[in-house]
């Protein structure tokens, strides 16, 4: 389906997605005052990037970008923003005096990267592999000794996610020594009723 997009239409789609991503990112960084609108802009960036991934021979990653990034991670961000929303998130000033000095760093990095990349001669490789789910899974779960060994990374990522979940529960819990935080709230509720 995406093969037809790499004809004359490919660059048109690419520039559309690129302009959408850049506009959303600029709005996120410089204009947004409330984190909720910034989160919606970030979702816009991620959806545009998912389209660009699909154009760049990686439809599986485009789908994962929509599912995991725009779906799961940004859902978590929006959820936490709305839970913590004390109706004064937007009263935090956007920038301060230090920002004027600090912006030198990203501007320098950005200009040097773009200036460096502008001189390179990269060409799209016509035989580049189309990373659909079949070749990705075949390479990811290649258990032979001569294979790339990505499955070890896969296992380690599983352990990392487990550790992150445990750490998040420990950090966000109200008190570590109280095994049943719900019991206390129930007690308070009961007192409230009496």
């Amino acid at each position: 389906m995406f093969e037809s997009l790499n004809g004359a239409l490919g660059p048109i789609y690419f520039w559309t997605f690129a302009v959408m991503a850049l506009a959303s990112a600029i709005s996120l960084v410089f204009i947004c005052r409330h984190p909720l609108s910034a989160a919606l802009n970030l979702i816009g960036v991620m959806l545009s990037l998912a389209g660009i991934y699909a154009l760049l021979h990686s439809p599986f990653l485009g789908v994962l970008q929509v599912l995991v990034y725009a779906g799961a991670i940004m859902m978590l961000v929006v959820f936490v923003i709305m839970v913590l929303n004390q109706a004064k998130d937007h009263q935090v000033p956007r920038f301060d005096g230090f920002s004027i000095i600090a912006i030198i760093l990203p501007v320098t990095i950005g200009f040097s990267l773009v200036g460096f990349l502008g001189k390179q001669a990269l060409k799209a490789e016509p035989t580049a592999v189309r990373a659909e789910i079949q070749p990705i899974s075949a390479s990811l779960f290649d258990l032979t000794a001569a294979g790339p060994g990505y499955y070890i990374l896969f296992e380690l990522i599983g352990v990392l996610l487990l550790v992150a979940v445990v750490a998040a529960v420990l950090l966000a819990k109200r008190r570590l020594d109280d095994p049943t935080p719900a019991a206390e709230e129930k007690k308070e509720d009961a007192h409230g009723h009496h």
Binding site: A25, V29, P35, A38, V45, R94, P106, L113
Partner: peptide
């Protein structure tokens, strides 16, 4: 990609709201 990276770095070093 470089411009998006620089924009993300700008948000990290200049914004004051911790969500940004």
């Amino acid at each position: 990609a470089a411009i998006l990276f620089a924009l993300g770095l700008t948000a990290v070093v200049t914004r004051r709201n911790i969500f940004f």
